[in-house]
């Protein structure tokens, strides 16, 4: 899967989790850029990403994700 293909699927997950059809994320997007992305929704988002890509993140990844770019790197590593 290419990085662009990951983004295509990832944007759909973000839109579903945050209920915002206009949401588009990029490498540099952080929790501060997305309304409602706090520690409560973080776990929901992680679980939704895991389901969508059929992968499982370890706790290091869950705790240390700083931006969407990190998340995409982690997804590509797991695939």
């Amino acid at each position: 899967m290419t990085r662009n293909e990951v983004y295509e699927q990832l944007n759909a997950v973000f839109r579903d989790v945050f209920d915002d059809e206009s949401l588009t994320v990029a490498d540099e997007t952080t929790a501060a850029d997305v309304e409602d992305w706090d520690s409560l929704t973080h776990i929901t988002l992680i679980a939704a990403v895991e389901d969508a890509f059929d992968i499982s993140f370890d706790m290091k990844t869950v705790v240390r994700l700083k931006c969407v770019g990190d998340m995409v790197d982690a997804i590509l590593q797991e695939l």
Partner: peptide
């Protein structure tokens, strides 16, 4: 508490199944 209780608790099998 977020990193060592809240996140790990939500990542347990029981919580995932409940979700």
């Amino acid at each position: 508490f977020r990193d060592y209780l809240f996140y790990p608790l939500q990542r347990t099998g029981a919580f995932r199944r409940l979700g």
